[in-house]
Amino acid sequence: MSALEVIRPGPLALLQDAGRPGLAALGITGSGAFDRKAFRAGAALVGNDPAGRDAAIEITLGGLVVRASGGPVQVALTGAPVPATVGGLAAPFGRAFALAEGDELALELPPRGVRSYLSVRGGLLAEPEFGSRSRDLLAQLGPPPLKAGDVMAVGLAPAWQPAADGTLEPDFPAVLEVLPGPRPDWLAEPAALARTWEVSPQSDRVGVRLLGEALAWAAARIGTELPSEPVVRGGVQVPPGGLPVLFGPDHPTTGGYPVVGVIADSDRLAQLRPGDPITLRWVR
């Protein structure tokens, strides 16, 4: 049976699939690939399950080195365009290619964006938890972050045919649209959210934190508490300190600070790099 062996994991490499939807009432968040469009594109390129049940590697800021063992594997790289080599020769991005037994695929640092996906035909096998092989960094569910020496078996080739190569448009947003959330009235001036912020280094799959001039809570709310309520991926939460947090796939299922808006396309958060400027814009 063919397998992938981790030679070096890079800064952070996680198995991700379509996650654990529908379990929030049990305290289990959705998790799953952060940039779902890139993950699905990779699955299509290698002919994996379109519903996203085959796990891929979500690579944060490149650096991953893997070796094929036990036979050839068919792979594809999507997401943040990352320079990569196989045996010293440039590897393709955005289309499927084969790794022969013993081949080493080495990723460098993507010049832009954060998360790249290495999809493998048949998916990577690991013990699922609640129907998913996604690593949830907050609840610590699913397979732990990859480390050197990990060997992951590759699943049986699925019945789907690989999609034709297409052009993958890297999505590096300068503007994010914000839909209304449940608690805009907790801000003194909801309109003040709509401006250009800077992405904080304290950003991860739980949430992307923004830096800038703090937003003021409405005077009547200061010193009060919001009873914990459910939150959603993409939710724009404003704690008392006034700096927004944009919830990623591993967000807590409930939160005690007001969610004033919801990012319309939360996949775009996956590629925001610390220091990037990002403009929020209200839409109705």
């Binding site: 939807p21 529908g22 929030a24 009432a25 009873p227 309520e229 459910p230 959603v232």
Partner: peptide
């Protein structure tokens, strides 16, 4: 409705 998530004072309906 695909998901119902109750909390202290509210319920999320997805």
């Amino acid at each position: 409705v695909t998901e119902v998530v109750p909390a202290a004072r509210t319920v999320l309906v997805r």
